[in-house]
């Protein structure tokens, strides 16, 4: 059983020190729906999904992610450009819904960002906004984070999220 041992003089092992909190809410015909994903630097993944759809009961899952997964999440976030974003010019949360993302890398030394805007329905909403480039980065990083988390949850619990 070998563990990845960096050769002398090579770059340090990639960091997996990441805190992430993502939430999105939506109020509509199924009441107030919300989805929350939180990953702590210890690897704790908490997932919450509540919806009034078909009188569904809230889904709550907690599982510990391995350092390998945290490294991948850290890399995904650091490379996405999300750490350089500001929500100053973004549409504020509306009555319909909110999307919020908070990320802290390496306890803050790798960057810290807190973003809030109205729920993005499609890329068309992004293109029409004043900070289209920033919102596009936000839109894709959220998609990528959700894909990672749903792939993991799907494998662990056999949940098939929509």
């Amino acid at each position: 059983m070998e563990s990845p041992q960096p050769a002398p003089g090579s770059s340090p092992p990639p960091s997996g020190d990441v805190f992430l909190h993502y939430s999105t809410t939506h109020s509509g015909r199924y009441g107030r729906e919300s989805l929350t994903i939180q990953v702590s630097p210890t690897g704790r993944l908490s997932y919450n999904n509540s919806s009034g759809y078909k009188r569904g009961t809230p889904i709550r899952k907690d599982v510990t992610l391995s350092p390998a997964v945290l490294v991948e999440l850290h890399r995904l976030l650091a490379e996405s450009g999300v750490m350089e974003l500001s929500d100053a010019a973004w549409p504020p949360p509306s009555g319909v819904g909110t999307a919020a993302l908070e990320v802290v890398l390496d306890g803050g030394s790798g960057g810290r960002v807190k973003l809030r805007t109205e729920t993005i329905g499609s890329l068309l909403d992004v293109v029409a906004s004043t900070d289209a480039d920033g919102l596009r980065v936000f839109y894709y990083v959220v998609q990528d984070v959700r894909c990672l988390i749903f792939a993991l949850l799907g494998m662990h619990y056999k949940i098939k999220p929509i």
Binding site: T42, G43, T64, P67, A68, M155
Partner: peptide, 29 residues
């Protein structure tokens, strides 16, 4: 977990995705 990286080559690595609770709490790195 031990052999996939060698078989697939390149930069591939294979690790457990999920860690157990209980005694699995202590982590280096």
């Amino acid at each position: 977990r031990g052999g996939l990286a060698k078989d697939m080559g390149g930069a591939v690595s294979a690790e457990w995705a999920f860690l157990g609770g209980g005694g699995g709490g202590k982590r280096r790195r």
